[in-house]
Design a protein around this nucleic acid. Sequence first.
RNA 1: GUGAUAGUAGCUCAGUUGGCUAGAGCACCAGAUUGUGGUUCUGGGGGUCGCGGGUUCGAGCCCCGUCUUUCACCCCA
Length: 426
Amino acid sequence: MAKIAAVKGTRDFYPEIMAVRNWIIDGWKQTSIRNGFVEYDSPIFEYLELYTLKSGDEIVSQLFSMTDRGGRDLAIRPEITPSLARMVNQQINTLPRPVKWFSAPRLCRAERPQKGRLREFFQWNCDIVGSESVLADAESIYTAIDYLRSIGLKSTDIVARISSRSMLAEILLAMGFATEDHNKVYSLLDKMPKVSPQAFAEMAAEQITESHLREEFMKLPALKTLADVDAVATSEGAKTALAELRELFAILDSMGVGDYCKFDIQIVRGLAYYTGPVFEIFDRSESLRAICGGGRYDSLLTILGGPKVPATGFGMGDVVLEILLREKGLLPELSSTIDYFVIDAGAELFDRTLKLTCDIRQRGHSASFSYKRQNLGKNFKLADSQKARFAIIVGQETIDRNEITIKELASGEQRVMAIDEFLGSL
RNA sequence: GUGAUAGUAGCUCAGUUGGCUAGAGCACCAGAUUGUGGUUCUGGGGGUCGCGGGUUCGAGCCCCGUCUUUCACCCCA
């Protein structure tokens, strides 16, 4: 038999790692619920077309696709937003708005694995559909920060960099950039933090051939605050978008997470479908890729032939998050334990041991016992290795009086107790 | 898709210019121990040195290929 390893870019979740995964996902769920989101899920595979409609045919090389026996082209979901759009679209006229839905799906992408990026991972998604209010954007960003704050990340550890796709577009128009050239500018801005100033200038020179436009473009990185933006927001549209972004920051401030938020014109979120405020959350040391990203996407349903419905939301993957928490020492001790380990002092007492174990389990506490006949010392070792809180000894002298000995393993203290009294206390 | 990096026991790693039957610590199993655990002592199992080919009298070590890891680029929903 050949040894078969785990597939490239996947992880085996041994119990210790599984505990971490559950802890992360439980935190996501609790945060979602306390912020008013309800959970949904979708199939793990969809028609391939659901993804090509949104992202074009290039996406096919970046996802796992297959043809089923009926000749259907399918793909394992690389993201859940298209599924969300499909589900919302199907019930668009009956769902009370705003729809506030969350999910923590398992996703697969056929990319080269590297730090913070695997081929299979979990991603928390929160989306608010049916509201164009900036309050929805604020609540989306707040929810992401709420979770990160709740697990111990301070505003000195992480930062939400926020900008607005619509504001940037309006500014570019005011500067003289035609709409079809905007994507080029977005790409350049996105690259800027990764390259040297000289390399950046060269890239800009290559991409933007008209010198007056290039001159305008080079003003963008200097816009560090919204006050700076004021000077270039000359058009009516730009002023409106700027006012919206100001409002967003004011709301986040009122919600108590202003320290975590910073305007950053470089945040453009790739070339995706974003139409309004956009944000990404990074660790302050900037040694990792983004922990979280999201924004407003008001046109997604139209891709599926649905009506134009406003929407905003974010996604947060488990991979980068776990790396950061490990670096910061914020992962809790999550050793699995059992409540009681029941030990008998002889084979003739085993029936009572078995019954007692099951009585404890019936009352909702975890209990275990040894499969092997062995002396007390071995049994205690076993209890210890299973991280039992208490050992219970079923001994001949005590059992005759319907009593058992209960020992707390951490302190070593033990006492004799009537079985009925013990079970009654559970 | 491009470029680098590494791969020896479950884990972390030694392994001499190529030379006896490939080692250590931890972990695991058992015994010391027939009414009390964590420490200790003794013993044991576990390896096609990632895989395939080549060079050589001889390869864990050198060469080629391949798979996987890690990192960066591309991309990033």
